[in-house]
């Protein structure tokens, strides 16, 4: 009797999970196998109608060309910088928000909900608003800067590659995109950190206070260590997501002002250059680099834990 029950449960399990696996298999695993094939073959958009009817021409040219191109390495550096700054920034802003709203006060629920608005906003709407605000002719930022901050000429925030601020070259457009992404993604970090903070038992802090710890010490030695694990997870996830960002960057700058991230490169190879093989190779290299970076990060954090 027990074996039949277990068998039945096994069968039901597979029955229920099979539609999910089918979707994942057809739209994730199969495409992944294909992208590897494309990366190693000579194939362009015009070849699509003949796909499956002609033999594949295998080649390493796509990878050779990618690795030899200036655009690839430039995009890689831009992407790492962009993803790293976004991850750190959204964690920092999320942390400040979570700590500021930790203690109950009247209207806290409403404030919490309102802070989520940038995260919920459609990215196209958000980008349209930011583009308008930063517009050199009628944008509020430039108008304010010229009226009250003494700017002589309007600043092209979304097209300026680099500007000297107090003698230091600053990548203006890239930083604007980073700030935009921090604005949009910090609410998620705030949510996760708040959830973790709520489960820190209040007694620990009270005990520390009895032992004479001041507020800063309580933060540094009690709260922050409790948040460490979720903070590292958020850093990792945001880096992974930002590393592949297309929408935010493309909508704000279309890659102008040295904001050509890897995802925009893949899109350009596919759509503008109509080269499927090259786009696939760019994408595969991008995933490979992401994996290497993540493996390095995991190793480093393991070592830091041990020591």
């Amino acid at each position: 009797m027990t074996t039949t029950a277990a068998q039945r449960e096994n069968r039901s399990g597979w029955l229920l999970v099979s539609p999910s696996l089918l979707v994942v298999g057809l739209v994730v695993l199969l495409p992944f196998a294909l992208v590897v094939v494309f990366g190693f073959s000579e194939i362009r958009l015009v070849d699509i109608p003949f796909l499956g009817t002609e033999p594949i021409e295998w080649t390493l040219d796509n990878f050779r060309r990618a690795v030899a191109s200036q655009a690839f390495w430039g995009a890689l550096w831009t992407t790492v910088l962009y993803a790293g700054l976004t991850a750190a920034g959204s964690l920092a802003v999320g942390l400040v928000l979570a700590l500021a709203l930790r203690r109950p006060f009247r209207g806290r629920g409403l404030v919490r909900a309102l802070l989520l608005v940038p995260y919920v906003l459609p990215v196209v709407a958000a980008a349209t608003i930011w583009k308008t605000a930063l517009n050199p002719q009628y944008g509020v930022v430039n108008a304010f800067g010229r009226a009250y901050l003494g700017w002589d000429t309007p600043v092209g925030f979304l097209s300026t590659t680099s500007a000297d601020v107090l003698g230091i070259p600053v990548p203006v457009a890239l930083l604007v995109v980073v700030v935009f992404d921090v604005w949009k993604s910090a609410p998620l970090a705030f949510l996760f950190l708040t959830a973790r903070l709520q489960s820190v038992p209040g007694e620990i802090e009270e005990a520390a206070a009895l032992d004479g710890a001041n507020r800063r010490q309580a933060l540094r030695f009690i709260l922050l260590p409790q948040l460490r694990a979720v903070a590292l997870l958020l850093l990792l996830l945001r880096f992974i997501w930002s590393f592949q960002t297309f929408d935010d960057v493309y909508l704000l700058t279309e890659g102008a002002g040295s904001t050509q991230v890897m995802a925009i490169q893949v899109y350009t190879e596919l759509v503008t250059k109509a080269d499927i093989g090259s786009a696939a190779a760019f994408g595969l290299l991008m995933s490979l680099i992401l994996c290497v970076l993540l493996a390095g990060y995991v190793l480093l954090s393991r070592r830091a834990d041990e020591s």
Binding site: S20, V24, V27, V28, L30, P31, F32, L34, V35, F38, I48, P49, L51, G52, L237, I240, F243, Q244, F246, M262, A263, V266, Y267, L270, I276, A279, A280, G283, L284, M286, S287, L290
Partner: peptide, 22 residues
């Protein structure tokens, strides 16, 4: 399923585009 959740979506855009346009 978890691995798929974390997988770079942009990489799969290329083959998905090709399959669906075929």
């Amino acid at each position: 399923i978890l691995a798929v959740y974390l997988f770079p979506g942009i990489v799969l855009a290329v083959p998905k585009f090709v399959i669906l346009s075929r």
